[in-house]
Design a protein around this nucleic acid. Structure first.
Lengths: 342, 342
DNA sequence: CTGAAAGCGCTTACAG
DNA sequence: CTGAAAGCGCTTACAG
């Protein structure tokens, strides 16, 4: 059973493909095609279960109604929620999305960008890994709309939408300070991307503004693809019994770090918040049911995803409108739970 | 700066598109094109940054190198991990994947299938919602390869790959019995799909085989899109202080249920495992760091995803090979943690 | 060894 | 109001 095409319908009715194309695209009125014929075309299309070949349409019109999405890892709930929102918002407007996980690896993202170009996507939403500046720069120069999410490169003029990480970390750290903590540590990841850097900068600034000094020994920077044991070591150095500079609080810059960290803290026989208070970025389920539910910096993921799609589609629909670059920064909220004491 | 096409390269060198196409597709040798020319073509292609238009290729060859994936919700880590594996395995062979979240809603999955058909995908991997039998039946009859994951319809002849849910629940329940629990409850979801049914059946069989009787009051079936409060009510009925038929153990059929359940149990001031022992399907991070780390039925998600892609690609590559339908059932493992006591 | 030509399934000026 | 024709960028028989 072959798929039915436009000309099948045309033959069936003894009319031209042109006509069929017009009515199927809702341009019947516009071209004043008789209602009779319109009705018949629609009937036959339904009867033959006509499905337009979007590939052919794409080739002809140059538009595929497809968006390319590159994030670090779709299995990570942070990007899963973001991806879901993007998928949903795109679908509302008839766009499909091709998902790509880069693992924060610029080589992979480079290949994925090439693949998406070849697929003739109408736009890109990308969470760029470090060292992918050149790729993004090249893409931003092209005709195809692009919006960056979660992070961006300050030196590249390009739409982006992210969160005020400095402010978020600043407030989180202040919360710890307000709870009377004196030695506040930060565990982060060596992503070397604005978002992570801003978190640590916000943390430092909060300490300074409170008249506390910044102790670089209390800042642990782990490799991006850290394992449980890497976190365990950092935790041990920070709060282990033998540590002669024990921290009494930790700000985790990612939830993967935090989840591993909580495991390690428990393994050392330490109690949260009595021995260590913690605050973490992001809000996975795990934090709601752990021994001491975790105070978190919650990011408006749905809004990020939705806005990214809106900006993108707007550019896609108005390709020659003066490109006004959008740089959007959203606020986070601090959800207070029990991990900092009461 | 327009994209460069085959004929740009051809003109540039004063040769035909045919020739360029041949060498770019690695058929230079096959058609005995002189090495000199091959080299030149490759050079110019690189110089002009030629990116083949996959849309045009797709139209011409009828193959898009694209797979359509429909799961319930990409934001759910269960499907996130599965999706990630599928994306990765597909990419290994040069295939892209379009992700669709159906929310277990057959209307949505129906539209998504139509959209994927129109996109001319080369194959489908689907986790079908209930009441989507007709869609799957129609798809299975078509030319395009299809593999079902996580669940399937026993009456439809179609590739599928899932887990032995009966056995998994049976063993999980047995574990609870071995720990001396006498009143074992099951909280599940009204998906009305084999996978969920098998879980409850396995649970019942384990009770019977142990000479315990099945008490329907101890089986709570919640709506698929349940909220926290629905779970809370079920928990209260099962283990609340006022309950005059208190369960001493619960088997959760999904981790969403389990995570909410643990919250509710804590809210009632009950202790795991002392007051209630629990076992849950699936293995989210949350279970590793909660008050009493949860014993779980762990599914081989990566294997499911990888195998699904392999079966699919194999069919795609051999379209006329006698279609041997594959029905694969994988074993789960029970990861013992602390939630059932020691 | 290489090229001219047809055609995949659409859309869209153009003509009448 | 409707149709014939061109063309999007490829691949692939076919011819020489």
């Amino acid at each position: 059973m072959k798929k039915t095409s436009l000309s099948d319908i045309a033959k069936h009715l003894g009319v031209s493909k042109t006509l069929v194309s017009f009515v199927l695209n809702g341009k019947g009125k516009e071209f004043r095609i008789s209602e009779d014929i319109c009705k018949k075309v629609l009937e036959v299309a339904k009867e033959l279960n006509y499905q337009p070949n979007r590939i052919a349409q794409g080739l002809r019109t140059g538009r595929t109604n497809t968006i390319g999405l590159i994030i670090a890892d779709i299995a990570n709930p942070f990007f899963g929620i973001l991806g879901r929102e993007i998928e949903q918002e795109a679908a509302r407007f008839g766009y499909r999305v091709i998902f790509c996980s880069s693992d924060e690896n610029p080589e992979k993202s480079g290949q994925q960008i090439a693949m998406l170009q070849q697929s003739q996507v109408d736009g890109y939403i990308i969470s760029p890994p470090k060292n992918s500046e050149d790729q993004i720069k090249a893409l931003a120069k092209g005709q195809v709309p692009l919006v960056l999410i979660d992070r961006y490169f300050p030196e590249i003029e390009c739409n982006h939408i992210a969160v005020d990480n400095f402010d978020a970390a600043y407030r989180a750290t202040n919360h710890l300070i307000a709870k009377g903590r004196k030695k506040i540590a930060n565990i982060t990841v060596n992503l070397d991307l604005v978002n992570m850097r801003d978190r640590t900068e916000g943390y430092k600034q909060a300490l300074r503004d409170a008249g506390m000094n910044v102790d670089e020994n209390l800042i642990k920077v782990l490799p991006f693809s850290h394992e449980n044991k890497d976190v365990a070591r950092a935790i041990k150095e920070l709060v282990g019994k033998t540590s002669q500079n024990r921290a009494d609080a930790i700000l985790f810059s990612t939830s993967k770090l935090g989840i591993n960290g909580i495991e390690s803290i428990a393994a050392l026989g330490l109690k949260i918040p009595d021995d260590v208070a913690i605050v973490s970025f992001d809000n996975p389920d795990a934090y709601k049911i752990c021994v001491s539910p975790v105070t978190v910096v919650n990011q408006p993921l749905k809004e990020i995803g939705k806005t990214a799609v809106q900006i993108l589609l707007n550019e896609i629909k108005h390709p020659d409108a003066p490109a006004k670059i959008q740089k959007i920064t959203l606020k986070t909220d601090l959800i207070i739970r029990k991990s900092c004491g009461s």
